[in-house]
């Protein structure tokens, strides 16, 4: 999946905004938003929030976890759990951080620090993910629980991990076929030679 497509899913996450305008509710297919009253917070999908923010129709209230103290604690837990992944406060934490710090950085307190810590957490998780991928392929296991991994993280090991495992599976099937002496592998292809002739 394209990272933009992961972002597309992340943009559906709800977020609180403080509108600066009054308007009756907007009836969207994905659920109604509003009604909007100036200064009264309401919940909208992230893509609506960012669009309103661009037109300076609202202030965005960052999600609770997007706060230096919470994130520092999360970073500590992530480092302490050396072989497992900590449950993230949001299924799309990376997308939300990227979009909010990009499009609404003035609404996030201590945005630079938040950015650094989120990046640290991401790097830490990616390092763990890479080492578990490595051990998975070494043990050639064909099943893995990936609880607590977010969509963006899963997507980052695609297509290489599933692809590598597919190849391993093929090799195992060949072995199984040979040991049983079955005729499943009689279909051999002669190599085409482009030299000489």
């Amino acid at each position: 999946m394209d990272p933009d497509e992961v972002e597309f899913w992340g943009e559906k996450s709800p977020i609180q905004i403080v509108p600066t305008f009054n308007s009756p509710a907007i009836y969207l297919i994905g659920g109604d938003v509003g009604p909007f009253r100036a200064t009264i917070p309401c919940r909208v999908p992230l893509w609506v929030a960012l669009s309103l923010k661009r037109q300076q129709y609202c202030k965005i209230i960052p999600p609770e976890w997007m706060d230096v103290d919470t994130l520092t604690e999360l970073r500590r837990q992530e480092k302490a759990a050396s072989s497992s992944f900590v449950k993230m406060p949001s299924e799309h934490y990376m997308v939300e951080a990227k979009l909010l710090l990009g499009g609404a950085a003035d609404d996030v307190p201590r945005a630079d620090e938040v950015k650094t810590i989120v990046k640290d957490i991401w790097d830490n998780r990616m390092a763990k993910l890479r080492s578990s991928m490595d051990s998975m392929i070494r043990n050639s296991s064909m099943y893995a629980a990936v609880d607590n991994l977010t969509l963006m993280e899963i997507n980052s090991v695609r297509p290489i991990l599933p692809h590598a495992l597919n190849q391993l599976y093929r090799m195992k099937m060949v072995k199984r076929g040979l040991s049983q002496g079955s005729a499943t592998l009689t279909h051999t292809r002669t190599a085409v030679s482009f030299t000489g002739s």
Binding site: S140, M142, Y143, A145, V146, L149, I154, Y169, K172, R176
Partner: peptide, 21 residues
């Protein structure tokens, strides 16, 4: 797992995520 005919059984709880054939 591609090795033998015998295979392990697993249960999935609602909301869990796995990588599987």
């Amino acid at each position: 797992d591609g090795k033998a005919e015998s295979s392990d059984l697993i249960d999935l709880a609602s909301g869990s995520q796995v990588l599987i054939n």
